[in-house]
Amino acid sequence: DKPVLAIQVLGTVKWFNVRNGYGFINRNDTKEDVFVHQTAIKRNNPRKFLRSVGDGETVEFDVVEGEKGAEATNVTGPGGVPVKGSRYAPNR
C-alpha cells in the first residue's frame, strides 16, 4: 500500500486524457498538481462507459505517495457523489 499523505482533499481537474486514462488535479489547499489515473476514480458517472473526470471539474480525493510523487486515489465528486466525467467519454 502507498503511504497516505492527505484525505478528503478538494481540487480542480487541470486536464484528463480519456484515451490514455490519466490526468492531473490541482489541489485547492496547496495548489499542487496531483497525478490521477482512471483506476483511482471510485464513483464514476453511471451514464459514462469509461471512468473519467472532466476538465475544470471539482473533485474530492485522498492523496498517496506514488512512485513519481503525489497521486490521487478514492476520487469522487464533492461529498462522495459520483464524478461528472469528461465530455469526451462515451455515454452508455
Rank of each mutant, 00 (worst) to 15 (best):
L5F: 09
L5M: 11
I7T: 15
V9G: 05
L10M: 12
T12S: 07
T12A: 07
V13I: 08
V13L: 14
V13D: 11
F16C: 04
N17S: 09
N17I: 11
V18G: 04
F24S: 14
N26Y: 12
R27S: 08
N28T: 09
N28S: 08
N28Y: 13
E32D: 08
D33Y: 13
D33E: 12
V34I: 12
V36G: 04
N44K: 10
N44G: 09
N45M: 04
N45Y: 00
P46Q: 08
P46I: 06
P46E: 08
P46S: 08
R47I: 11
R47H: 14
R47M: 14
R47D: 15
K48A: 06
L50C: 12
L50Y: 11
L50M: 13
L50V: 12
R51E: 05
R51C: 07
S52K: 02
S52F: 01
S52E: 08
V53Y: 04
V53D: 00
V53C: 09
G54I: 05
G54K: 12
G54S: 10
G54M: 11
D55S: 14
D55Y: 09
D55A: 15
D55P: 13
G56H: 06
E57R: 02
T58S: 10
T58G: 05
T58P: 10
V59S: 00
V59N: 00
V59Y: 00
E60R: 11
E60F: 05
E60S: 09
F61V: 02
D62S: 08
D62M: 05
D62V: 01
D62R: 03
D62E: 04
D62C: 06
V63K: 01
V63F: 00
V64R: 07
V64D: 04
V64M: 06
V64K: 06
E65H: 14
G66F: 00
G66S: 12
G66W: 01
E67H: 13
E67T: 14
E67V: 15
K68G: 09
K68P: 05
K68E: 06
K68R: 13
G69L: 06
A70C: 14
A70V: 12
A70E: 10
E71R: 12
E71G: 02
A72M: 04
T73N: 12
T73G: 08
N74F: 00
N74M: 01
N74H: 06
V75P: 02
V75G: 03
V75T: 00
T76R: 09
G77T: 05
G77D: 00
P78F: 04
G79I: 02
G79Y: 09
G80C: 03
V81C: 13
P82I: 02
P82Y: 09
P82M: 06
P82C: 12
V83N: 01
V83M: 01
K84Y: 08
K84Q: 13
K84T: 09
G85L: 02
G85S: 02
S86P: 03
S86H: 11
R87Q: 13
Y88D: 06
A89R: 08
A89M: 06
P90M: 10
R92I: 12
R92S: 11
R92M: 12
